[in-house]
Amino acid sequence: MDTTGRPNPLFRNLSAKIAAIPMILTALVIFVGGTAWTVIYSFTSSKLLPKKLFEWTDVINIGDWSLSIPTGIVWKSFVGLQQYERLWNTNRWMVSIENLFIYGLCSLVLSFIIGFVLAALLDQKIRFENTFRTIILYPFALSFIVTGLVWQWLLNPDFGIQSVIRGMGFVGFTFDPLYSADIVIYGVLIAGLWQGTGLIMVLMLAGLRGIDQEIWKAARVDGIPAWKTYLFIVIPMMRPVFITTLVIIASGIVRIYDLIVAQTSGGPGISSEVPAKYVYDYMFQGQNLGQGFAASTMMLLAVAIVVIPWAYLEFGSRKRG
């Protein structure tokens, strides 16, 4: 009877499922477990070393069995939302959030626009396409640390762009974004875009190449101008590429840390601080794990607020359709 019925879906592709167990365990223990641990310890007053959250008390032993049941707990280092209160009362954290917001928004919009325009230009069957593509993609081969240092020098008023242009005779020319608190984050943005746009361009180019040539021919027959074809036909068709690109850019934004460290170290003052740097500085330099955990939990929450509704829309609708 059983053997003739439908096989249990749990045992389909059994060998593949067994092979995936180590990865599933890794993901559960390290990612989910580590995340949960971080969130829990963000409610403690842990300093250099994590402190115990609570202890069981009033343990009663039942009869002759060596079975003991705790009936109460004593909070050891549990401090409730104190770490979060301190976090949101810290000026540096607020500046960090603001910077991340400005950097993220500009980086997202500009990466998309510049990347797409470059890809569209390269797609015009130009000569030396390979050369241009290599040149534009090249900065992506550099780490953020190198990028940061290069742009720190380029934007240095004493021997960077400013001094070169002044040397040409424009004595009044001033361009020193890294030394002005109001615009320093845009100085970082320039470096970030320089490094990352090449990759976005290549992704977009791959997307454009994936569009059937017949569509272009059809558009031409109908007499639709090229820009309209891009805007109303090609771009909607490139949705999957856009989604991939969005995920890549967004993850790059949230974890931005090394570029800031190399380029400005958060300065001048605290005007180019970012959340990830706050987390690192308080966890390791400040020897205050609790505060660092609280900050990283807030980062997780911010990501979750963006990702969960999107994932719901994206994957929820696919099932229905």
């Binding site: 300093k47 300065g267 330099q285 020897q287």
Partner: peptide, 15 residues
Amino acid sequence: TEDTNNQLNDLFVEF
């Protein structure tokens, strides 16, 4: 503590 020093660093570098 290093925690306090870090907070003072943040305050004065801003100031």
